[in-house]
Design a protein around this nucleic acid. Structure first.
Lengths: 155, 155
DNA sequence: CTGAGACCTGACGTTGACGTCAACATCCGT
DNA sequence: ACGGATGTTGACGTCAACGTCAGGTCTCAG
């Protein structure tokens, strides 16, 4: 308990090129996410270059997931991520500090409500997808039946 | 058998304004879909105005579904729809005509393969969504636990 | 037959999420 | 200390999927 004060034991920090290559995204995208405040590099060199931690990379993966899987735009993703950040922050200052339990309760409440909103939309999407799959399976089944019927013309 | 030759018993045909309103999309979108060949109105007036059948409306709903649910772009959607159209067409000329059974078999085979490709991507998406939901539930669970713990400070 | 809508075809504008290029700055191995 | 790889900030370009005019045409109730 207490490895380092303000420096979480980051693994290797990557320059923007390496990070981009590892993630399979463009450097431009990473700069863009930074510009929007979606992604703040773990540190920057005195000269102003971005250095990305593994946690940063994970965050980018999450961004892409929210994009491709849920079809959220970057503004919506910002909301989701800010929420998750607050939850994490609250858990960090958990038994710590006396920042008023009631206040914390309030924040947590808000976050939970928002997450449940997200959950609902995700659930709806999954349900719709299931229906879609059933439909597809029906089509495929009919197609396969057709093919089988032609393989054995006379039973 | 033989209600009308080239006129399937369409219900009411709608003008583009009514169709758009009923579907909750813009007239521009409908014209755009038509322009791309995604949506061909059931008929057009001698003066060149589009008249949409219920089947056309269903098609638009499917387009939107493929957009929002699967995140496909209109080109990809065109592929999917053309496929489905061919399957339907084959089923229509089913016991009819002598357009070579082998040929039909070939087409069906192709369609089934494509549909299965789509199925795979949809399935993958659903799986990913399930993982996502589990993650969300975990977060929400932790939040709720926090709140409950504060409601009963001493057990 | 007529006129108020409804509709048509261009043609240009918009928005989100970057791509691309220019001109300059920084980092780091030797 | 140096130089090539790597990075930085603007600024403009792009692409899909429409939005938004303008200027003319079609439809259909009365």
């Amino acid at each position: 308990m207490g490895e380092a004060r303000e420096a979480p034991p980051d693994g290797p920090l990557l320059g923007i090129g390496a990070a981009a290559q590892r993630l399979g995204v463009s450097e431009r995208a990473l700069r863009y996410y930074h510009q929007l405040g979606l992604l703040v590099p773990a540190s920057t060199t005195p000269g102003g270059q971005r250095r990305f931690s593994p946690a940063d990379l994970a965050r980018v993966e999450r961004i892409r997931e929210l994009q491709t899987l849920l079809g959220l735009n970057l503004d919506e993703i910002a909301v989701v991520l800010r929420n998750e950040d607050r939850m994490a922050e609250i858990r960090l200052t958990w038994h710590d500090e006396r920042t008023s339990a009631a206040e914390r309760r309030q924040l947590t409440q808000e976050c939970v409500v928002l997450q449940e909103g997200l959950r609902a939309t995700v659930e709806a999407k999954r349900t719709a997808l299931a229906g879609f799959l059933a439909d597809l399976d029906a089509r495929i089944g009919r197609g396969r039946a057709f093919l089988a019927e032609q393989d054995e013309p006379v039973s």
